[in-house]
Design a protein around this nucleic acid. Structure first.
Lengths: 147, 147
DNA sequence: CCAACTTAGTCAGATAGTCTGACGACCGTC
DNA sequence: GACGGTCGTCAGACTATCTGACTAAGTTGG
C-alpha cells in the first residue's frame, strides 16, 4: 500500500469495483423510492430464505452478532421490508420473512446489478467479463466460509 | 441472494475475497503487535502520500467527510502511526505524514498481502491469477474516481 | 419426570465510524 | 484591503456494531 504507483494490491483492486457496484445499487434503490435502506440492512435482507429465516441463522450467515441482526431486522420491519412471525416448528424461534414491500424492491435491485454488469462487460469485453466471473467463483471456494 | 443457487451477483463475488483479504491482513497485523489498527483507519492511512497529505485530500480520496478523516487521523496520531506538521506552502493546511511506527507496519502488511496472493495463485493457477489482476486493473478504469 | 444443559431471542450499555451544520483562521484575487 | 473560497475543527446526532446478562423454551440423562 502507501504509494506504489502500479502493482496495487489485489484486496484494493477487488474493493474498488465492489464499492462502485454498491453505490450504484443504493443510488438506484433510493431513486425508485427505497431510500430507507442501508448496506448493513441489505446484508441481512439478502440472506432471508424463501420460507423465512431465524434471526440466529441470519446473524451467522452475515457474520454479525444476534444482537446486531435483531437491531437491523427491527429497522427492516419498521420500514415494511420484512415481517416476523412464529416458527411453527419451534416456539422459541420466530421467522423473519420478506414482506410485500421488500419483495417489490428485489427486482429493482436486480435490474440495477444487471445494468452495471452490462456496462462492465462493455468496457472489458464479453470474454474478459465471463473470465472475471469464472475466476471469482473459483476464488470463492477458498475465501467464503458460508456456503 | 434470496435464492438463486448459481449466478451470484458480481458485486458479492468481489466482496467475498476482499473481506477474506482484509481479515487476514488485520489478523496478521494484530499478531505482529499492531492491534490498535482498524479498517477505517487503514483506508485513510493507505492514501497518505510519500511527502505527507492534507486532511482534505485524504477525505476526498477515501470518500469520507473531512470530519471523519480528522477523527481517524486523530486516532492514528494517538497510536503513533502518523504525525501532523505544518504545510510549508499553505499556512491553513497541515500535512499528515507517516510516523516511524506506521512505516514499520507497512512491510508487515505487505508481506501478509503477498502471502494471501500466493495462496490464491496456488488455488487458481498462476495464469488465472495474472488474468484476475489484469481484468481488475482494467475494471478500475471505470469504477475508480480517484486516480 | 425433572434437573441440567442448550438454544432463541431480548435488554442494557458501550464503542466505532459516519454524517450535517456552524465556525474561525487563512488564502488568493480584484 | 475587503471578499469569496478553502483548511481544519467543534458540537451534536445517528447507524452499526460489540460484550455481557437475562428470560423463555426445547432437549436429554439419570
Amino acid at each position: 500500500m502507501t504509494a506504489e504507483p502500479e502493482p496495487l494490491n489485489l484486496g484494493l483492486l477487488l474493493y474498488i469495483p465492489y464499492r462502485a457496484m454498491e453505490a450504484r445499487v443504493f443510488a438506484g434503490l433510493a431513486e425508485a423510492g427505497y431510500s430507507d435502506f442501508t448496506p448493513a440492512q441489505a446484508r441481512v435482507f439478502q440472506r432471508i430464505g424463501p420460507g423465512g429465516s431465524r434471526l440466529t441463522d441470519l446473524a451467522e450467515q452475515a457474520q454479525i452478532t444476534k444482537q446486531s441482526a435483531g437491531f437491523l431486522v427491527d429497522q427492516l420491519e419498521r420500514a415494511g421490508y420484512v415481517e416476523r412471525g412464529p416458527d411453527p416448528t419451534d416456539a422459541r424461534a420466530r421467522l423473519v420473512r420478506i414482506a410485500p414491500r421488500g419483495a417489490a424492491a428485489v427486482p429493482v435491485a436486480a435490474a440495477i446489478v444487471a445494468d452495471v454488469e452490462r456496462e462492465w462487460a462493455a468496457h472489458l469485453g464479453g470474454h474478459r467479463a465471463a473470465q472475471l466471473r469464472q475466476i471469482l467463483t473459483r476464488l470463492r471456494e477458498i475465501t467464503d466460509r458460508y456456503r
